[in-house]
Deep mutational scan, measured.
Amino acid sequence: NKASVVANQLIPINTALTLIMMKAEVVTPMGIPAEEIPKLVGMQVNRAVPLGTTLMPDMVKNYE
């Protein structure tokens, strides 16, 4: 099973992601793959992301 990106803390709306906000975890359903973490740094979330939430592509602005 591949790990996904999971919020390590509450991430407020429009916050630019940093490494300490994210962790890799095997979850179902899968979200953004953990190997994308370096690419996510500096990208903004378009909603508040609660602690423990799996990051999905539609939660990150301009994620492709």
Rank of each mutant, 00 (worst) to 15 (best):
N1P: 15
N1E: 15
N1Q: 13
N1V: 14
N1R: 02
N1H: 09
N1I: 12
K2F: 15
K2I: 15
A3Y: 12
A3S: 13
A3F: 08
A3G: 07
A3N: 04
A3M: 09
A3H: 05
S4A: 08
S4G: 11
S4N: 02
S4K: 02
S4V: 03
V5G: 04
V5A: 15
V5L: 03
V5Q: 01
V5F: 01
V6M: 14
V6K: 07
V6F: 08
V6N: 03
V6A: 03
V6C: 11
V6P: 01
A7R: 01
A7H: 01
A7V: 09
A7P: 01
N8I: 08
N8K: 11
N8F: 15
N8T: 14
Q9M: 08
Q9L: 10
Q9C: 11
Q9K: 10
Q9P: 00
L10D: 11
L10V: 14
L10M: 07
L10W: 11
L10C: 11
L10P: 10
I11C: 03
I11H: 01
P12N: 10
P12R: 11
P12E: 14
P12A: 07
P12I: 13
P12M: 09
P12C: 15
I13C: 14
I13N: 12
I13G: 12
N14A: 13
T15K: 06
T15F: 11
T15D: 04
T15R: 12
T15G: 08
A16V: 09
A16L: 07
A16H: 05
A16M: 09
L17F: 07
L17G: 00
T18F: 12
T18C: 08
T18V: 04
T18R: 10
T18Q: 03
T18Y: 06
T18P: 01
L19G: 03
L19K: 02
L19C: 13
L19W: 12
I20E: 04
I20V: 12
I20S: 15
I20F: 14
M21I: 05
M21G: 03
M21K: 05
M21P: 00
M21Q: 03
M21C: 04
M22D: 00
M22K: 00
M22R: 00
M22Q: 02
M22T: 03
M22S: 01
K23I: 04
K23W: 05
K23E: 02
K23D: 03
K23S: 06
A24G: 11
A24T: 11
A24Y: 12
A24N: 06
A24M: 11
E25Q: 09
E25H: 12
E25D: 10
E25N: 13
E25K: 10
V26Q: 10
V26C: 15
V26E: 15
V26G: 03
V26R: 02
V27M: 08
V27H: 05
V27Y: 05
V27E: 02
T28Y: 05
T28Q: 07
T28V: 07
T28F: 07
P29T: 13
P29F: 12
P29Y: 14
P29L: 15
P29W: 15
P29N: 11
P29D: 09
M30W: 11
M30R: 02
M30N: 06
M30T: 10
M30I: 09
M30P: 06
G31V: 03
G31H: 02
G31M: 06
I32A: 02
I32V: 13
P33C: 15
P33W: 09
P33G: 12
A34W: 12
A34G: 14
A34P: 09
A34L: 03
A34R: 05
E35R: 03
E35K: 06
E35I: 06
E35D: 06
E35L: 06
E36R: 14
E36F: 08
E36S: 09
E36C: 13
E36Q: 12
I37C: 05
I37F: 05
I37S: 13
I37Q: 11
I37R: 07
I37P: 00
I37K: 05
P38A: 13
P38V: 04
P38D: 05
P38H: 13
P38E: 05
P38T: 13
K39P: 09
K39Q: 10
K39M: 04
K39V: 06
K39G: 05
L40Y: 03
L40P: 00
L40V: 09
V41Q: 13
V41R: 12
V41M: 12
V41A: 11
V41T: 08
G42D: 04
G42A: 11
G42Q: 13
G42V: 02
G42W: 13
M43G: 05
M43C: 05
M43T: 05
M43I: 04
M43P: 00
M43R: 12
M43D: 04
M43F: 15
M43K: 07
Q44G: 03
Q44I: 06
Q44Y: 15
Q44F: 14
Q44S: 12
V45K: 00
V45L: 14
V45P: 03
V45E: 00
V45A: 04
V45I: 04
N46P: 03
N46C: 15
N46M: 15
R47H: 09
R47I: 05
R47F: 13
A48I: 07
A48R: 14
A48G: 05
A48E: 03
A48L: 13
A48N: 06
V49R: 11
V49Q: 02
V49S: 02
V49G: 01
V49C: 07
P50K: 11
P50L: 11
P50T: 07
P50E: 11
P50W: 15
P50C: 14
L51F: 14
L51P: 06
L51C: 11
L51Q: 07
G52Q: 12
G52K: 07
G52T: 04
T53W: 15
T53I: 11
T53E: 07
T54R: 13
T54P: 08
T54F: 02
L55H: 00
L55N: 00
L55S: 00
L55K: 01
L55V: 08
L55W: 01
L55G: 00
M56D: 08
M56P: 01
M56S: 09
P57R: 14
P57G: 14
P57Q: 09
P57C: 14
P57L: 07
D58R: 09
D58H: 10
D58A: 11
M59W: 09
M59R: 03
M59G: 07
M59S: 10
V60N: 00
V60Y: 02
V60E: 00
V60F: 03
V60P: 01
K61A: 09
K61E: 08
K61F: 10
K61M: 09
K61S: 12
K61Q: 11
K61Y: 12
N62F: 06
Y63K: 02
Y63F: 06
Y63T: 03
Y63Q: 03
Y63V: 03
Y63P: 02
Y63W: 12
E64Y: 04
E64V: 14
E64M: 14
E64S: 15
E64P: 12
